[in-house]
Amino acid sequence: MEDKSANKQEQRSRATREKLVVAARALFAQRGYAAVGTEEIVRAAGVTRGALYHQFREGKEQLFEAVFEVVEAETTRRIAEAALVGAADPVAALRNGARAFLEICAEPEVERLALLDAPAVLGWERWREIGFAYGLGLVAATLQAGIDAGALAPGPVTPLAHLLLGALDEGALYVARAEDADAARAEITLVIDRLIDGLTA
Rank of each mutant, 00 (worst) to 15 (best):
Q55P: 00
S13I: 06
Y134Q: 13
F56M: 05
K4L: 15
A140G: 04
L164V: 03
A87I: 00
A6C: 03
A149S: 12
A183N: 07
A151H: 08
R25G: 13
F132S: 11
G146P: 06
V47K: 08
F101P: 04
D3C: 11
L164D: 09
A92L: 03
A23N: 09
A87S: 09
D197C: 07
D117L: 09
D193Q: 08
R14T: 12
A24E: 03
Y33C: 06
D117H: 10
E129Q: 14
R78Q: 14
A167H: 14
R43G: 05
E125D: 14
L113F: 01
A6Q: 10
E109Q: 11
A118T: 03
L138Y: 02
A73P: 08
D3S: 15
P154N: 10
T48R: 11
I188G: 07
R128W: 03
I192K: 04
A6D: 08
D169P: 00
I188C: 04
V85F: 02
D148G: 07
E81C: 04
L199T: 05
E40S: 00
E40K: 05
H54M: 12
A151T: 02
E10N: 15
G50K: 08
L122T: 13
V71H: 06
D89L: 00
Y53Q: 08
V47P: 12
V42R: 03
A141T: 13
R31F: 02
V91L: 00
A34C: 04
A29W: 07
G131H: 05
A26P: 06
A167D: 13
T158I: 09
R95A: 07
V157N: 02
F68E: 11
S5K: 15
D117I: 11
E18I: 03
E61Y: 00
I79L: 02
R57F: 03
V47C: 10
A80Y: 06
G171T: 03
I104P: 00
A24P: 11
T158G: 01
A153C: 12
K60F: 02
G166Y: 05
G86L: 04
I104C: 02
F101W: 14
A161T: 01
L173Y: 11
R49K: 13
R43I: 05
H162N: 01
T38Q: 07
L102S: 05
R57I: 01
A44H: 07
F101V: 04
E74D: 15
F28H: 05
A45E: 04
A172H: 12
A140H: 00
L152I: 10
E125C: 01
R12D: 14
